[in-house]
């Protein structure tokens, strides 16, 4: 019974215009803020590479990073060719 009530109310909440507005606002702000400057994207690329190169050798020149917008979502897509894996400390078994 309680579950049913919760389901009913839960569904109600997600159908209110406030909920819709909030969701639309989230997406619209995300899209608006995607319009970031090439300098910022470049600094994100440099930071990412700094972390990744601790684990593997990558082709930094061929690395591509971009934000892609889809229907109702945004993805950060990175294409980073790996040239070589570093020898990482083996995971200890216990």
């Amino acid at each position: 019974m309680l579950e049913l009530l919760q389901r009913v109310f839960g569904r109600e909440a997600s159908r209110t215009s406030k909920y819709l507005a909030k969701e639309r606002l989230r997406l619209v702000l995300m899209h608006d803020r995607m319009d970031i400057s090439p300098q910022i994207l470049e600094s994100l690329r440099a930071d990412l590479l700094k972390v990744i190169t601790e684990y593997m050798v990558v082709d930094e020149g061929a690395t591509e990073i971009a934000l892609h917008r889809g229907q109702g979502s945004v993805a950060l897509v990175a294409n980073i060719p790996v040239l070589k894996m570093k020898r990482l400390p083996q995971k200890l078994k216990n």
């Binding site: 209110t16 406030k18 507005a21």
Partner: peptide, 16 residues
Amino acid sequence: MVKRGDMLDVEDVIEH
């Protein structure tokens, strides 16, 4: 309107 779920409230706006 906020109470009946038809208007963004201050928390929603600040959060964004």
